[in-house]
Amino acid sequence: MSRDKNRERDFIKDLDSLLAGKQVNTEGKSEDERTILALAKRYTECRAEPSAEFHDSLKSRLSLKLAEQEARAQQDAERREQRWSWLSGFMVQSPVRRAAIVAAIAVAITFGTLWARGIFTEQAGPIVVTPTPEPEIPILTVPAPGPLTEPVFQAVATTEKAIYASGEEITIEFSLRNTGSETVTMVAYPPQIDIRNAENGQTVRRYPAGTGKQELAPFETLGYTLVWDQMDSRGHQIPPGTYTITIDDISFTSPTQPEAVPAPLGNLAEISIQSP
Protein backbone atom coordinates (compact mmCIF):
# COMPACT_ATOMS: atom_id res chain seq x y z
CA MET A 1 0.00 0.00 0.00
CA SER A 2 2.73 2.45 1.04
CA ARG A 3 4.82 1.22 -1.90
CA ASP A 4 2.00 2.21 -4.25
CA LYS A 5 1.74 5.59 -2.58
CA ASN A 6 5.47 6.18 -2.91
CA ARG A 7 5.32 5.19 -6.56
CA GLU A 8 2.41 7.54 -7.14
CA ARG A 9 4.23 10.40 -5.37
CA ASP A 10 7.38 9.79 -7.44
CA PHE A 11 5.32 9.71 -10.59
CA ILE A 12 3.67 13.05 -9.80
CA LYS A 13 7.09 14.54 -9.10
CA ASP A 14 8.48 13.19 -12.37
CA LEU A 15 5.45 14.44 -14.25
CA ASP A 16 5.94 17.92 -12.78
CA SER A 17 9.53 17.85 -13.99
CA LEU A 18 8.45 16.72 -17.45
CA LEU A 19 5.87 19.48 -17.74
CA ALA A 20 8.46 22.00 -16.58
CA GLY A 21 10.69 20.83 -19.47
CA LYS A 22 13.23 19.13 -17.21
CA GLN A 23 14.93 15.78 -17.75
CA VAL A 24 13.65 12.85 -15.70
CA ASN A 25 16.00 10.17 -14.49
CA THR A 26 14.42 6.78 -15.17
CA GLU A 27 17.18 4.71 -13.63
CA GLY A 28 15.98 2.27 -11.02
CA LYS A 29 12.40 2.47 -12.27
CA SER A 30 10.40 -0.51 -13.41
CA GLU A 31 9.59 -1.11 -17.04
CA ASP A 32 5.99 -0.15 -16.37
CA GLU A 33 6.98 3.21 -14.86
CA ARG A 34 9.52 3.95 -17.56
CA THR A 35 7.02 3.37 -20.34
CA ILE A 36 4.40 5.49 -18.63
CA LEU A 37 6.85 8.38 -18.19
CA ALA A 38 7.96 7.95 -21.79
CA LEU A 39 4.39 8.33 -22.92
CA ALA A 40 3.95 11.41 -20.76
CA LYS A 41 7.11 12.88 -22.29
CA ARG A 42 5.89 12.19 -25.81
CA TYR A 43 2.55 13.71 -24.97
CA THR A 44 4.14 16.94 -23.73
CA GLU A 45 6.20 17.14 -26.91
CA CYS A 46 3.07 16.96 -29.06
CA ARG A 47 1.23 19.79 -27.37
CA ALA A 48 0.03 22.59 -29.59
CA GLU A 49 0.97 26.17 -28.87
CA PRO A 50 -1.04 29.27 -29.79
CA SER A 51 0.31 31.09 -32.80
CA ALA A 52 2.19 34.34 -32.24
CA GLU A 53 -0.36 36.13 -34.37
CA PHE A 54 -3.23 34.95 -32.22
CA HIS A 55 -1.27 35.74 -29.05
CA ASP A 56 -0.60 39.32 -30.15
CA SER A 57 -4.03 40.12 -31.57
CA LEU A 58 -5.86 38.81 -28.49
CA LYS A 59 -3.43 40.64 -26.22
CA SER A 60 -4.01 43.97 -27.96
CA ARG A 61 -7.78 43.44 -27.90
CA LEU A 62 -7.77 42.60 -24.21
CA SER A 63 -5.44 45.49 -23.38
CA LEU A 64 -7.81 47.88 -25.12
CA LYS A 65 -10.79 46.46 -23.25
CA LEU A 66 -8.97 46.61 -19.93
CA ALA A 67 -7.87 50.20 -20.62
CA GLU A 68 -11.47 51.18 -21.35
CA GLN A 69 -12.62 49.54 -18.14
CA GLU A 70 -9.92 51.30 -16.15
CA ALA A 71 -10.80 54.63 -17.75
CA ARG A 72 -14.45 54.16 -16.85
CA ALA A 73 -13.52 53.19 -13.29
CA GLN A 74 -11.25 56.24 -13.10
CA GLN A 75 -14.07 58.50 -14.33
CA ASP A 76 -16.45 57.05 -11.78
CA ALA A 77 -13.90 57.56 -9.02
CA GLU A 78 -13.31 61.16 -10.13
CA ARG A 79 -17.05 61.84 -10.22
CA ARG A 80 -17.42 60.46 -6.71
CA GLU A 81 -14.44 62.53 -5.58
CA GLN A 82 -15.92 65.70 -7.10
CA ARG A 83 -19.27 65.11 -5.42
CA TRP A 84 -17.57 64.56 -2.09
CA SER A 85 -15.24 67.53 -2.44
CA TRP A 86 -18.19 69.80 -3.25
CA LEU A 87 -20.01 68.59 -0.16
CA SER A 88 -16.96 68.70 2.10
CA GLY A 89 -16.01 72.13 0.74
CA PHE A 90 -19.45 73.44 1.57
CA MET A 91 -19.65 71.86 5.00
CA VAL A 92 -16.18 71.53 6.38
CA GLN A 93 -13.72 73.90 4.84
CA SER A 94 -15.51 77.13 5.71
CA PRO A 95 -15.93 77.62 9.46
CA VAL A 96 -18.18 80.64 8.85
CA ARG A 97 -20.55 78.64 6.67
CA ARG A 98 -20.44 75.77 9.10
CA ALA A 99 -21.34 78.06 12.03
CA ALA A 100 -24.09 79.72 9.96
CA ILE A 101 -25.64 76.35 9.09
CA VAL A 102 -25.49 75.13 12.67
CA ALA A 103 -27.04 78.40 13.88
CA ALA A 104 -29.79 78.21 11.25
CA ILE A 105 -30.60 74.63 12.28
CA ALA A 106 -30.69 75.63 15.96
CA VAL A 107 -33.02 78.56 15.19
CA ALA A 108 -35.26 76.32 13.11
CA ILE A 109 -35.49 73.76 15.90
CA THR A 110 -36.23 76.44 18.51
CA PHE A 111 -38.82 78.09 16.30
CA GLY A 112 -40.42 74.73 15.55
CA THR A 113 -40.59 73.81 19.22
CA LEU A 114 -42.12 77.17 20.18
CA TRP A 115 -44.60 76.98 17.32
CA ALA A 116 -45.52 73.45 18.37
CA ARG A 117 -46.24 74.70 21.87
CA GLY A 118 -48.54 77.37 20.47
CA ILE A 119 -46.43 80.37 21.46
CA PHE A 120 -47.02 82.12 18.14
CA THR A 121 -50.62 81.11 17.68
CA GLU A 122 -53.58 80.92 19.96
CA GLN A 123 -54.27 77.37 19.02
CA ALA A 124 -51.94 74.73 20.25
CA GLY A 125 -49.57 73.30 17.71
CA PRO A 126 -49.29 69.68 16.74
CA ILE A 127 -47.18 68.82 19.76
CA VAL A 128 -49.15 68.85 22.98
CA VAL A 129 -47.10 68.71 26.14
CA THR A 130 -49.10 67.57 29.12
CA PRO A 131 -47.57 68.70 32.41
CA THR A 132 -47.05 66.01 35.00
CA PRO A 133 -49.76 66.31 37.58
CA GLU A 134 -48.44 67.26 40.94
CA PRO A 135 -49.66 65.38 43.98
CA GLU A 136 -52.95 66.74 45.14
CA ILE A 137 -52.75 68.45 48.44
CA PRO A 138 -56.18 68.70 49.97
CA ILE A 139 -56.86 71.90 51.78
CA LEU A 140 -59.14 71.17 54.63
CA THR A 141 -61.01 73.80 56.44
CA VAL A 142 -62.60 73.16 59.76
CA PRO A 143 -65.83 74.88 60.63
CA ALA A 144 -65.82 76.24 64.13
CA PRO A 145 -68.07 74.29 66.44
CA GLY A 146 -70.77 75.94 68.52
CA PRO A 147 -71.27 79.63 67.96
CA LEU A 148 -68.42 79.91 65.46
CA THR A 149 -69.87 79.79 62.01
CA GLU A 150 -66.72 80.09 59.94
CA PRO A 151 -63.96 77.49 59.50
CA VAL A 152 -61.21 77.70 62.08
CA PHE A 153 -58.24 75.87 60.58
CA GLN A 154 -56.83 75.43 57.17
CA ALA A 155 -54.33 72.56 57.22
CA VAL A 156 -51.89 71.69 54.46
CA ALA A 157 -49.25 68.94 54.35
CA THR A 158 -46.62 68.99 51.62
CA THR A 159 -43.77 66.67 50.68
CA GLU A 160 -40.88 67.27 48.32
CA LYS A 161 -42.18 64.65 45.92
CA ALA A 162 -45.08 62.28 45.52
CA ILE A 163 -43.07 59.07 45.05
CA TYR A 164 -40.28 57.90 47.33
CA ALA A 165 -37.98 54.96 47.19
CA SER A 166 -38.26 52.47 49.99
CA GLY A 167 -36.10 53.52 52.94
CA GLU A 168 -35.79 57.11 51.80
CA GLU A 169 -36.40 59.78 54.46
CA ILE A 170 -39.61 61.76 53.92
CA THR A 171 -39.85 65.34 55.11
CA ILE A 172 -43.43 66.50 55.63
CA GLU A 173 -44.13 70.20 56.00
CA PHE A 174 -47.37 71.01 57.82
CA SER A 175 -48.98 74.38 57.59
CA LEU A 176 -51.81 75.32 59.96
CA ARG A 177 -53.66 78.55 59.40
CA ASN A 178 -56.28 80.15 61.59
CA THR A 179 -58.96 81.24 59.21
CA GLY A 180 -61.33 82.44 61.90
CA SER A 181 -61.87 85.91 63.29
CA GLU A 182 -60.61 85.22 66.79
CA THR A 183 -57.50 83.85 68.36
CA VAL A 184 -57.56 80.14 69.00
CA THR A 185 -55.42 78.02 71.28
CA MET A 186 -54.43 74.51 70.27
CA VAL A 187 -54.48 72.57 73.49
CA ALA A 188 -52.29 69.64 72.44
CA TYR A 189 -49.58 70.89 70.14
CA PRO A 190 -48.30 69.45 67.80
CA PRO A 191 -51.47 67.58 66.90
CA GLN A 192 -51.59 63.79 66.48
CA ILE A 193 -50.38 62.73 63.03
CA ASP A 194 -51.18 59.33 61.56
CA ILE A 195 -49.62 57.68 58.54
CA ARG A 196 -51.99 55.10 57.13
CA ASN A 197 -51.96 52.49 54.42
CA ALA A 198 -54.23 53.97 51.75
CA GLU A 199 -55.50 50.58 50.67
CA ASN A 200 -56.71 49.20 53.99
CA GLY A 201 -56.73 52.32 56.16
CA GLN A 202 -54.48 50.69 58.72
CA THR A 203 -52.28 53.08 60.69
CA VAL A 204 -48.67 52.12 60.21
CA ARG A 205 -47.11 54.93 62.18
CA ARG A 206 -48.60 57.33 64.73
CA TYR A 207 -47.00 60.48 66.05
CA PRO A 208 -48.94 61.18 69.26
CA ALA A 209 -50.14 64.70 70.02
CA GLY A 210 -47.81 66.94 71.98
CA THR A 211 -48.59 68.30 75.42
CA GLY A 212 -47.91 71.98 74.68
CA LYS A 213 -50.39 74.73 73.92
CA GLN A 214 -50.10 76.97 70.89
CA GLU A 215 -51.99 80.18 70.19
CA LEU A 216 -52.85 81.15 66.68
CA ALA A 217 -54.10 84.62 65.89
CA PRO A 218 -56.64 85.18 63.13
CA PHE A 219 -55.09 84.47 59.68
CA GLU A 220 -51.87 83.45 61.31
CA THR A 221 -50.09 80.45 59.84
CA LEU A 222 -47.96 78.05 61.77
CA GLY A 223 -45.49 75.70 60.23
CA TYR A 224 -44.41 72.32 61.55
CA THR A 225 -41.96 69.86 60.06
CA LEU A 226 -41.96 66.11 60.53
CA VAL A 227 -39.31 63.72 59.19
CA TRP A 228 -40.56 60.18 58.67
CA ASP A 229 -37.98 57.44 58.27
CA GLN A 230 -40.53 55.05 56.68
CA MET A 231 -40.47 52.91 59.80
CA ASP A 232 -43.69 51.59 61.26
CA SER A 233 -44.55 51.86 64.97
CA ARG A 234 -42.50 48.70 65.67
CA GLY A 235 -39.41 50.02 63.92
CA HIS A 236 -39.77 47.98 60.69
CA GLN A 237 -39.49 49.33 57.17
CA ILE A 238 -42.98 49.69 55.77
CA PRO A 239 -43.71 47.79 52.52
CA PRO A 240 -44.04 49.66 49.19
CA GLY A 241 -47.48 51.10 48.60
CA THR A 242 -49.55 54.23 48.93
CA TYR A 243 -49.85 55.97 52.27
CA THR A 244 -51.86 58.91 53.56
CA ILE A 245 -50.74 61.61 55.98
CA THR A 246 -53.62 62.37 58.25
CA ILE A 247 -54.47 64.76 61.10
CA ASP A 248 -57.81 63.53 62.33
CA ASP A 249 -58.56 66.62 64.42
CA ILE A 250 -57.09 69.50 66.34
CA SER A 251 -58.44 70.32 69.81
CA PHE A 252 -58.60 74.01 70.52
CA THR A 253 -60.17 76.68 72.69
CA SER A 254 -61.07 80.26 71.92
CA PRO A 255 -62.52 83.19 73.80
CA THR A 256 -65.95 82.19 72.70
CA GLN A 257 -65.20 78.46 73.17
CA PRO A 258 -63.55 78.03 76.56
CA GLU A 259 -64.02 74.24 76.57
CA ALA A 260 -61.58 72.35 74.32
CA VAL A 261 -63.33 70.95 71.28
CA PRO A 262 -61.89 68.86 68.45
CA ALA A 263 -61.92 70.41 64.98
CA PRO A 264 -61.98 67.47 62.56
CA LEU A 265 -59.57 67.48 59.61
CA GLY A 266 -58.62 64.31 57.66
CA ASN A 267 -56.20 63.15 54.95
CA LEU A 268 -53.83 65.97 54.09
CA ALA A 269 -51.48 64.26 51.58
CA GLU A 270 -50.80 60.98 49.84
CA ILE A 271 -47.41 59.52 49.02
CA SER A 272 -46.19 56.41 47.25
CA ILE A 273 -43.34 54.22 48.40
CA GLN A 274 -41.70 52.13 45.69
CA SER A 275 -39.29 49.24 45.74
CA PRO A 276 -35.68 50.41 45.49
Binding site: E8, F11, I12, L15, D32, I36, A38, L39, A40, Y43
Partner: peptide
Protein backbone atom coordinates in the same frame (compact mmCIF):
# COMPACT_ATOMS: atom_id res chain seq x y z
CA UNK B 1 -6.76 12.78 -8.88
CA UNK B 2 -3.26 11.27 -8.62
CA UNK B 3 -4.62 7.73 -8.83
CA UNK B 4 -6.95 8.51 -11.73
CA UNK B 5 -4.18 10.31 -13.60
CA UNK B 6 -1.76 7.41 -13.18
CA UNK B 7 -4.33 4.91 -14.41
CA UNK B 8 -5.28 7.10 -17.36
CA UNK B 9 -1.70 7.42 -18.55
CA UNK B 10 -1.21 3.69 -18.19
CA UNK B 11 -4.30 3.09 -20.33
CA UNK B 12 -2.96 5.53 -22.91
CA UNK B 13 0.36 3.74 -22.97
Amino acid sequence: VGVKLYRAIRKMR
